[in-house]
Design a protein around this nucleic acid. Structure first.
Lengths: 356, 356
DNA sequence: TTTAGCACTCCAGCCGGTAGAGTGCCAAGT
DNA sequence: ACTTGGCACTCTACCGGCTGGAGTGCTAAA
């Protein structure tokens, strides 16, 4: 249906959307005729607009206003018409400066999110890799607290720290806890968390008698710590308040919907999850994805990776009417630099081969 | 100057504010005369309103509207006229259910904040105790990462976990790290962080020769981890989007100011800090505190404590026109229950029989 | 196929009029 | 000395009508 448009029609659609992105007003035939540089009369432009409207790429807010791009119009625009602005080395330097390689991964992600929101003047998103499955266990520690509570500290290979408090039925001495941790680390360090969990179940039964007690302790503790889901904090959002400066979203009800989406996180996570599979920058426009709260909004995302394997995605969310040609390269480069930083300070550009 | 008001005047001021809080409309003399139950004619009420206006306790949006309380009016109201609604045991149960004693402290605080925002339908605030000074060190751990980075895990007596990645000049083996941690824990566990930092400086010079190497390592690592400020995350805010449903704040610019305040956190922290000193519930009304962003807002706070010593404050922020008689007891009880939960599962507090 | 012309539509802003709510003041009543 | 009814006045919010501007759709001519 929307096979290939006439080049002239394409140019008109492109300039219409550029113009609309620039000042947010419906674009009339006269303005468009002048702007496009095609030496056409307004009347001709009107005819073409009529065609575009039939195709569902533009629409008119009311009988006598100019045209405005529809979601599908934006889709064609970003897919085939848009030419991204090359990023200046200056900007790259700024981003790189903010995302230093030698930081706590948690801070690194937070910084990336904040950076995105600042540079794009929109809300920044970072989906944090859920520690499940992929990450390998590096070390486990047990720390006794008061009142039969034990703090379990779990460090994964990439330097992320998770901790959880569990309850036990009796008091344990510090040396017992240390032995348990030692046993556990000897047995399981280096394995993936999923693997650890699987083996735990097996070993719980086939325990050799002398280690029984300690091993039992360790495994039961670790199992408690591992099984409870840690979906918490999977999504970071920064610079939400930037969205309040945007005329398109001035309506409090729209804002409310958006902010609720930030808080519940579910829909956004689902969206970001989709973008993990495909490599490179991905763009979700308006109601395309089917989320009510994201009507009139677009999400630009890119996956990032550790040591070559994709572990999460980042991006920005803003009004459908955003400066894609600037936002897209920024999201792209941020994802690349973040991947580099997460993969260790040495391997800044060259893809490294890992062992572990 | 505003020494003691006539009782009749007090009643009128009280009902005026109650009425205004209830429906947000300026209150006229006729309505007030009927509502107050004093058997006065509107004309008399008008005279008294005139007096109150002179005292700066009420004001009129324009010549022919009813009266509206000023910040000073609210101040008198909450200080001397307000009678708080007693909390039902049902509510207490709900709050207690949400704030279970045996949880990770971090979750506990987050839950409290979320709870406050839900119950009051406003934004919930929790100031997290900065780990500085007060908390005692329980355990320190070093975990080697790739690329000469070391993860320092620091557990304080109350079960909070802090971690930071530091860079070192050479690679360390796992056993070296373990020795260093052991040495460190033997020497310093149980001391307050401030104390630890002080002793570190001394010990760094007077090192005995055989332990020199290891101790040197441990102290240098710990010092790096301890000195960098961890002001991060001192304030948690929940349910911000509740504020978008409030008619008083429907204006996007006001919202923008507020949300910026949430993000920068500085002013709010300063405010909450003030409330740490005084015991019990404290109320900041509108521009009283001098923060531009908080105009038309009130903050209701209460300090919470661990084992009897105050470590932080929590509360809610909302429009000046809020249901104080409900919010105040909720903030109060939440602070108490949180304190109980933080102080360990055993001492669930004997019912406070104090009335203020 | 493009263009000029024309009638038409719709929005945004402005004006004037009106109803409603509430005040301030004054003079009379208790 | 208070309290009250009465009265004139003021301000807002709302409605309807009017107007100018912008832009379209259609038609007929180039």
């Amino acid at each position: 249906m929307s096979s290939t448009l006439n080049t002239r029609t394409e140019i008109l659609l492109k300039t219409l959307i550029e113009r609309y992105i620039a000042d947010g007003q419906p674009v009339g035939s006269r303005t468009l005729a002048r702007q496009a540089g095609l030496d056409l009369s307004p009347a001709t432009v009107r005819n073409i607009m009529s065609d575009l409207e039939e195709l569902g790429l533009v629409t008119s807010p009311h009988t006598s206003a100019g045209r405005v791009p529809t979601d599908r119009g934006y889709r064609v625009f970003v897919d085939t018409l848009l030419q991204v602005r090359p990023i200046t080395t200056n900007e790259v330097r700024k981003i790189r400066h903010e995302i230093e390689a030698d930081q706590d991964p948690q801070h690194l992600l937070a910084n990336a999110s904040h950076l995105l929101s600042e540079v794009c003047r929109l809300a920044g998103l970072v989906m944090v890799p859920r520690r499940e499955e992929q990450a390998a266990l590096r070390q486990l520690d047990f720390v006794g607290l008061t009142g039969r509570r034990i703090l379990v500290i779990l460090v994964t290979q990439d330097g992320q720290v998770h901790n959880r408090i569990i309850n036990v039925e009796r008091d344990y001495s510090a040396s017992e806890l240390e032995q348990a941790a030692n046993y556990f680390n000897d047995a399981y360090a280096g394995l993936g968390l999923a693997e650890v969990r699987r083996q735990l179940l097996r070993d719980l039964e086939a325990a050799s008698s002398d280690l029984q007690r300690i091993m039992d302790l360790a495994t039961r503790m670790a199992r408690q710590a591992l099984t409870e889901e840690d979906k918490h904090d999977e999504l970071m959002v920064s610079g939400e308040s930037n969205l309040m400066d945007i005329p398109d979203l001035m309506d409090v009800r729209k804002l409310r919907l958006l902010f609720d989406a930030f808080n519940t996180k579910r829909d956004l996570l689902h969206l970001l999850d989709q973008s993990m599979r495909a490599g490179g920058v991905k763009i979700f426009i308006g109601a395309e994805a089917g989320y009510e709260a994201l009507r009139e909004c677009s999400v630009v995302t890119a996956p990032y990776s550790i040591e070559g394997t994709v572990v999460g995605t980042l991006g920005v969310i803003g009004p459908t009417r955003m400066a894609y040609e600037q936002v897209i390269p920024i999201v792209d480069i941020t994802a690349r630099l973040l991947s580099a930083a997460l993969s260790g300070p040495d391997r800044l550009e060259s893809p490294g081969r890992d062992s572990h």
